[in-house]
Design a binder for these strands. Structure first.
Lengths: 252, 252
DNA sequence: AAGTGGTCTAGACCACATT
DNA sequence: ATGTGGTCTAGACCACTTT
């Protein structure tokens, strides 16, 4: 009698991961709750430390768990900040003297310090901004925080010639922010384009956003155009993907 | 003389990863090119296999490299498909009898097989679609491919009552697709909202999209509203984040 | 046949958090 | 003080790809 070829089993560490995953998704382990760690898995499954680690690494890379050294492995909690692009940038927001950032948080606290410098436009900025590579641009960069936790970095680039002498180059840009100032210069932004990518953070990015592993970043490049269709600002943002829900409205 | 406290070095595997990363970003290793593998790193750095593996795992999780068993580790190539939401869904596209999918690819080939079934609306669909949980909906799901490579899964949900008897429930929905059929029913989509998240794929998702590890997915839920603001369709999509560049245009 | 990455064991020591 | 995860070694065998 010919032997039935056994269906090839996945490796042990994936079996362990699969069981833990389904226990999380079934709600057996709830968000914030602790799941079996390396030592427990070594016992329960009779595997070595590295194999148990491999299993836990799968879940960590899937973003399902947070590991805290010395404490254990915990089911991750999510807390999405809705970010409606059109609403944030509608004239009534900056026209009324509020900052765009307020729109996201609906009044929640946020600390910030703006770094302002003039530099030579790198290629990825010069292109969308419609200026020659290396030409002088003003860069306003900052880290956005929610309850002390960094969730986004952003850098706003404007042609140096455009903003020279305006409050845009100052720490406090005044009521309505840079868009209100651009309007005073007769270059109010009319149209926007956002380009959105998602990828894993590089070493440095993960550090500044304090990202747990298994957390992607959302990379947004927004170009603001004035009434003549001329770019006036390029804003490059990096968002903690576990903290954001992007919303885009449009019509046919 | 008091000793200067040595700046704590990062672990070896991170040092190795950092060097390889900068060699990739500096262009020393170009996309598609092979980088030192486990055995090479064991030699060069005098470390054990697992430590070399840990270093390569960092790059893999950052999405910088692809590893091919038996072949080696290679710098990843990117090939972004631009996806302009508004353009895809503009009336002139489906009005002219073309499928939305064509807009992305500009004529590039794509195979597809649509799976059609009626099921009870799960919570995450029923909510946006504005129907009770468990009520009957038609689901049209498929895998989108570019040059044979799966890059997206999508599932379109419509209230069963709305589409009963129309070609929407058939394999071939006819010229202009389901949106043209909805228009014939007097329920043409007027307004859309897309909600965009990014996260790591779960085990099954990674399999169907054939995702290399270190590749996030972009999760889009699009709701289409008719002229009265009533939802007529919910489309849930999962995109290979390494294959897509999303574009959104809007005005202030 | 030779080389590559994938899985796994059995130990060890460390840094950190909790008790 | 104890337990946790983080790093690392030194082996081993396997599956796969390339030559």
């Amino acid at each position: 009698m010919p032997e039935q070829p056994e269906a090839k089993q996945p490796p042990i560490y994936r079996q362990i991961a699969a069981e833990l995953r389904s226990d999380i998704q079934s709600g057996l382990y709830r968000p914030g709750q602790r799941i079996p760690g390396e030592n427990k898995l070594m016992e329960q499954w009779g595997v070595s430390r590295n194999t148990a680690r491999d299993a836990l690494a799968v879940l960590r890379e899937e973003g399902l768990t947070d590991t805290r050294r010395g404490a254990g492995v915990f089911v991750r909690k999510f807390n999405l900040i809705p970010r409606n692009a059109a609403e944030r940038l509608s004239r009534k927001h900056w026209g009324a003297g509020r900052s765009m950032w307020d729109a996201d948080l609906q009044g929640r606290p946020h600390a910030e310090g703006v770094d302002i410098r003039e530099l030579e436009a790198p290629e990825r900025i010069a292109g969308p901004l419609g200026v020659p590579i290396g030409s002088p641009v003003l860069c306003r960069s900052r880290v956005h925080r929610v309850e002390g936790r960094p969730v986004q970095t952003s850098a706003s680039y404007l042609p140096a010639g455009l903003v020279a002498g305006s409050r845009i180059a100052e720490q406090d840009t005044g009521p309505g922010g840079i868009y209100a100032r651009l309007e005073e210069l007769g270059r109010a932004p009319e149209r926007f384009r956002e380009e959105v990518r998602a990828r894993m953070p590089l070493g440095e990015e993960a550090k500044t956003l304090k990202l747990a592993s298994g957390t992607p970043v959302i990379h947004i490049v927004r170009v603001a155009f004035d009434a003549d269709g001329v770019p006036v600002e390029v804003n490059e943002m990096l968002l903690d993907a576990n903290s954001y829900l992007l919303q885009y409205d449009f019509t046919s």
